[in-house]
Amino acid sequence: MSTADDAHTRHLAAADPTGWFEHLYAEAENGTANVPWDVGDPHGLLVAWARDLDGTGRRALVVGCGLGRDSEFVAARGFATTAFDIAPTAIATTRRRFPDSPVDYRVADLFAPPADWHRSFDLVVESITVQALPVALHQRAIAAIADFVAPGGTLLAIAVARDDVVPEGPPWPLTEAEVRSFATGGLREVSVDRPDGRWCAEFRRG
């Protein structure tokens, strides 16, 4: 059974760096692949960061939401939550998993998002999405994600860390310079931590 680490998936990612997600989710739906990040629980770094967070009256966006683990958690913190993924099968599967969810799950492309998402969200959560793209697309993806943050809003970015060597991928973990580059378009860095080989970074728009 394939996973995101095998040669088949590496070929898909190289040939179609955003469309390979749909290939993987469709194969998982057919029982011929595993989605390795489908672990059921929200990311531990997100849970720790948002422990005392009250999102009442505020809007959140979850980038590359996959099968909804982080989106449901964010919504449970009180945010009016929108979550998107480029893979239609991922969104369809998530809606079936959470039929009564308050989350607005959407099929959308990070590189061609709805115009009304521009600087519209009080919280933007980016958890391991950029690292699922080839390194050549990282800066474009980072800039697109930063653009979702509203004035006064916060971006939380979570990723596996790497130093200088570019892995064969996927994934393609982020360097410190890449993580700090989320501070663009008026976002300022609040904190950049590296617990257990992962980045957990917070940025805010003044």
Rank of each mutant, 00 (worst) to 15 (best):
V166S: 02
H138E: 03
N30D: 13
A201I: 04
F98S: 00
I158R: 06
I158D: 06
T175Q: 14
R119Y: 04
D104M: 10
P173S: 09
T175M: 09
P17R: 05
G197E: 07
H138S: 08
T81H: 07
P170S: 12
V63Q: 02
P167N: 13
Q139H: 15
A146Y: 06
G66M: 09
T3Y: 02
L155D: 05
W117L: 00
A92I: 01
E22T: 08
A115N: 06
V63A: 07
V149Y: 01
D70R: 10
R198I: 01
G31Q: 02
T9K: 04
P195Y: 06
T129D: 01
E22V: 10
L45C: 00
T93C: 00
A92H: 06
R69S: 15
D6G: 11
R205Q: 02
A4Y: 12
P114T: 02
A143W: 00
G19Y: 11
A87V: 04
Y105L: 07
F111L: 15
A4M: 13
G44D: 14
H23M: 00
A76Q: 09
A83W: 11
T94P: 05
F21M: 12
G40T: 02
D41V: 10
V74G: 05
D16R: 13
I86T: 03
T94I: 02
P151F: 14
W172H: 08
V47I: 12
R59A: 15
V35C: 08
W37R: 03
L110S: 01
V63P: 03
T93Q: 11
P42K: 13
R194A: 15
P134T: 03
C65N: 01
D196H: 12
A108K: 05
M1H: 08
D52Y: 09
L123H: 08
S2I: 14
R188P: 00
V63N: 03
T3M: 05
I142Q: 08
W37L: 03
A157N: 08
A4P: 01
D122V: 12
V47K: 13
T3V: 12
P102L: 13
E126I: 10
S71Q: 12
M1F: 10
N30P: 00
D16P: 04
P17Y: 14
F73I: 01
T184Q: 12
L174W: 14
R162Y: 04
A48D: 14
T89C: 00
M1R: 08
V39K: 10
D122A: 13
G19K: 05
A28E: 13
G185Y: 06
R77A: 13
A80C: 11
D193L: 14
A7C: 00
A159Y: 15
A33I: 07
P102D: 09
I86S: 10
T184L: 10
I91V: 15
D109A: 14
A14M: 14
R162M: 08
A146N: 04
A136K: 11
G57A: 06
G197W: 10
D122M: 02
V47Q: 13
T3W: 04
D196E: 14
L53Q: 10
A76P: 02
S181F: 12
V130T: 12
W199R: 06
D116G: 02
D196R: 14
D109I: 14
A108S: 11
A150L: 12
V190T: 11
S101N: 02
D41P: 00
T93I: 01
H118N: 12
G186E: 14
D52T: 15
R119M: 07
G153H: 04
D5A: 09
A90C: 10
R188A: 14
A92G: 10
L133A: 07
E176Y: 02
Y25R: 05
R59Y: 12
